[in-house]
C-alpha cells in the first residue's frame, strides 16, 4: 500500500509527472479573472469564493486524464490487478496520491491567490476549510471517471463530460460554504452537506471504480 503511494508520489514529482499542472492552471485562472472582470474590488470580493472553487475544480479535472491512463498504457494496471493488493485499495491509494499532488497544493495556494481576487479576510479560512473538505471528493470521483474511460483513445473529453455532473454537488456546497463564510453568515448546513458528500464518495466510490476497471481490463 505504502509502496504504491510512494511510487505515485515519486512519479508525480519526477520529470513529466504532471505535478504543478493543476497549480499552474489555478494560478492562470486567478490572475486572468481580475483582468477580464475589471478592477472593481467590491465585485471581485463578491465573486472571489466562487472563482476560487471553480478554478480548483477545473484544475483538478485537467489532471484526471493521466490518473490511470499512464498505468494502463505501460501494462502496470494489468499487473496491479493480478497483485495481492485488492483493486479497491489500489484505486483508493491512487486517488489519495492524486489528492496529495493536485488537491492539497490547490488548498494551500488558495489563500495566497485569493489576494489577487480581493477575497475578504473573513472568507480566507472558509475557502481553505471548504477546499480541504471538498477536494478529496473531487479526486475519488475523478478516479471513478478515469476507471470508466481507461483504455479509450483520447478519452479525455468523455471523461470530462462524465465527471462534470458528478462534481456539481461538491461545487455547489463548497462554493456556498466559502460565499457564506466570506460575508459572515452561518455555514453549518452547507458545510455538513459538503462533508457528507465527501465521506460518501470516499467510502463508496473506490468499490465502483474497481468494478468498472475490472470490466475495462477484460
Amino acid at each position: 500500500m505504502i509502496a504504491l503511494l510512494l511510487r505515485d508520489l515519486k512519479l508525480a514529482f519526477r520529470a513529466g509527472g504532471g505535478f504543478g499542472l493543476g497549480l499552474a492552471f489555478f494560478l492562470i485562472v486567478t490572475v486572468l479573472v481580475p483582468l477580464s472582470v475589471g478592477p472593481q474590488t467590491s465585485l471581485l470580493a463578491l465573486i472571489s469564493p466562487g472563482i476560487l472553487w471553480l478554478g480548483a475544480l477545473l484544475a483538478n479535472l485537467l489532471s484526471l486524464d493521466r490518473l490511470l491512463a499512464l498505468d494502463w498504457e505501460d501494462g502496470s494496471l494489468d499487473l496491479l490487478a493480478t497483485a495481492p493488493l485488492p483493486l479497491e485499495v489500489a484505486l483508493g491509494i491512487k486517488a489519495f496520491a492524486h489528492w496529495l499532488t493536485t488537491g492539497l497544493p490547490l488548498v494551500l495556494a488558495a489563500p495566497v491567490l485569493g489576494v489577487l481576487l480581493n477575497l475578504p479576510t473573513a472568507g480566507v479560512s472558509w475557502v481553505v476549510i471548504s477546499l480541504l473538505l471538498g477536494t478529496p471528493a473531487l479526486s475519488v470521483i475523478g478516479t471513478f471517471g478515469a476507471a470508466l474511460t481507461v483504455g479509450l483513445k483520447r478519452g479525455g473529453l468523455l471523461l470530462s463530460l462524465l465527471v462534470l455532473p458528478l462534481y456539481v454537488p461538491t461545487l455547489i456546497f463548497g462554493a456556498e460554504v466559502s460565499r457564506r463564510g466570506a460575508v459572515g453568515m452561518d455555514v453549518t448546513t452547507p458545510l455538513l452537506m459538503l462533508a457528507g458528500i465527501t465521506a460518501a464518495a470516499v467510502a463508496l466510490l473506490p468499490y465502483a471504480s474497481a468494478a468498472v476497471l475490472r470490466v475495462n481490463l477484460r
Binding site: E73, D74, D78, L79
Partner: peptide, 15 residues
C-alpha cells in the same frame, strides 16, 4: 498463485 507477464512490462520510465 499466478505471476502474469504480458506484452507490456509495466515499467515506469522515470524510475
Amino acid at each position: 498463485t499466478i505471476a502474469y507477464a504480458g506484452h507490456a512490462d509495466g515499467i515506469k520510465p522515470t524510475l
